[in-house]
Structure formats: structure tokens, C-alpha cells
Computed example of a mutant assay.
Amino acid sequence: MASVMFRRFASADLPTEPPDVVHLIGEAAYLSTWQVLRLCRRHWPDVPTTLYAAQNVVTRFPVPFPMLEQAAYRSVRMALPITPQARDVLYAKGFRGASTIVPLGVDARIFRPPTRTDRDGRFTVGFVGRLEAHKGILDLLRAAELVDCDVLLVGEGSLTAEIDLAAARRPGRVRRHGWVTHDRLPALIGAMSALVLPSVEVVQRNVLPWVGIPLREQFGRVLVEAMACAVPVVGSDVGEIPHVVGDAGLIFPAGNVTALAERLTRLRDEPGLSDRLAARGMRRVETEFTWERVADRLYDIWHGLATARTAATAGLPVAGTPAATRGKVSA
């Protein structure tokens, strides 16, 4: 993504009327971010800019990316990190501007408690995502075998063959489902007694062989989707998982199969625990993670920036503006 650029003469597609705010959905070190900020300075120098940020590891990139990153930090009016760790990384890498945390969201009209479930009384742990080693899939399979519970995996990836072997070893107890559309996913999540995100940290070397980039879970949106479906969640202590889970689930040390099995056993056997966590998860989604909440937060931020710009241009003190006065936003 850092190497992606807009085509030549992209400025010809810019609207003739300046927007009130320009929001960049891309990290500070991206070439495309540098391009957009350059266009803003050239065509709309007074328009405030905001920047999405999800990086939760302090990574030192090879030249020229650090220069692009610092240029972006100097240019944007406000950063909008999705988690506290992402905000900490911004400041650790040299950002000195204002920031506000705006999380990722979930469509609560689609992800909601099912009217009926297909659990048939059996305790089933589930996973949704890429079936790769850094997602902790093999740890989940081993823990489920220790607990003697069913497993439902939704997704595709390089571990498909190993999952099929586990399914053959435990006939009828391990099921794998391919990718599905968002409207079909809630039914699969609703068939789970608990959703598990057992991610582990890995080091990726896909930029330069001698540059190791630690990869940690940047958010874990499937956790929010499960909470919206009233399904309790269990996650490892990697990256942003503990922040997203909050008090609505159980956390275990990444890679510790015994600890994961203990958390699953508690969920299955401790009276009332599953229901309490499910209720907390739904409250957490309602107050923090619905797209309506996210949209309200973004509107307040962008409207405030646009109002301050208008007042400054007119030489007036900044005053409140009716919330119904919606501004134009370019993303």
C-alpha cells in the first residue's frame, strides 16, 4: 500500500469548489498520502486536512518513506487514530498536532442477536478471518481439543489443509466454512458459543529483506461484530485486541494454549459468565462501535474544523454552529 500512487493528472478530477475538509484514508508514509497533501497545498491551501491512522507498531521505514511521513505530520490539521496504541505511535514517530481516537465500526442493522441459533446445545468456539499462522489458528485447534469442544472456522488461507486434517481427526467436531458476504456472516457467528481471536505477533519482511516489520492485530473488527451478535469473545493480548474487547470478553497470553483452554472452559462451565459477557459486549458496541456513533464523532470533528476555518477567514472569533449545517467532505 505504501507504494501505491494516483495516476498522472489526477488533479483534473478535483472538484472546482473547495471542500470544507479533506480526509485521507491512508497512513502518513504512503506515496498516495503525499500526493494528496501536495494537491491540497497547491489547490486548497486553507482547507483543513485530517488523517486516518492504524499503525500500532513504531516501524522505521527505508528512504524515502520517513521523509514522506514527517511531511504528512507537518501538513495535516488533525490525526484520527483508530486506537490508543495507534495514537501513541503517531506521537512516538514525530507527530505534534491534535488527534482524536475514532474507532472502526459495525453495521448494527446487520450484526445483531439472532432470532434463533443452530448451536443445538453444543459448545462451539469460532473464528472468522484469514486462516494463517499469525492468526493463531493452530493454537485454537489445540485448545479446543483440550476442552473437547466443537470448532467452526470461517475464512480461507494457507492453513486450509491442516484444518482439514484436524477435521478428519475429529469427525463432526471441526467445521470449516469459506468466505461469505456480510449479510450471511451474522448467522454463522450466531452459531458460535464464543468467538476467539487468538492472534500472535509476527515479523514481516515484505518491503526489504533486512527490514523486519512487526505485525500486531490493529483492531480486530470481527470482535465487534461478534459482540453486536451477543456472542462472547476471547482474544489474545496482542496488539489492539485487549482495547477492543474491554470488559466484554476474556484475554489470554498469546500462544499459550493452556491459558486459552482455561478461558474456554470458564465460558462453558461457569454459570452466567457467557450471558454477562454477551450483555457487556452489546452495550460496548452500542456506546462505541456502531457506524452511527462513528459518523457522529467524525461529523463533530469535521464540522468543528470547517467552522474554525470559516471564522478565521472572516476574521471572527470561533462560535458554535448548528449541527444541521452539514459540510462537504472529500475522502
Score class of each variant (00 low, 15 high):
A2W: 12
M5S: 15
M5Y: 10
S11Y: 15
S11K: 12
A12K: 09
L14I: 13
P15F: 08
H23M: 10
I25H: 14
I25T: 11
W34V: 05
R38K: 14
T59S: 06
V63C: 10
A72N: 02
A72P: 01
S75D: 14
K93S: 00
A98I: 00
T100D: 03
G105V: 03
V106C: 06
F111R: 08
R116P: 01
L131M: 03
K135M: 05
I137F: 09
R142Y: 05
A143F: 12
A144Q: 04
D148E: 11
A161D: 15
E162V: 07
P171W: 08
R173V: 07
G178N: 09
P186T: 02
G190Q: 05
L195G: 11
I213T: 13
P214E: 07
E240G: 03
G246I: 00
G249D: 00
F252E: 01
E262M: 03
R263C: 06
R266S: 13
P271M: 05
G272I: 08
L273S: 08
A278H: 06
R280M: 07
G281I: 01
V285M: 04
V285K: 01
W291G: 09
V294T: 11
A295N: 02
Y299F: 13
H303S: 07
L305A: 09
A308L: 05
R309D: 07
R326Q: 00
G327H: 09
K328T: 14
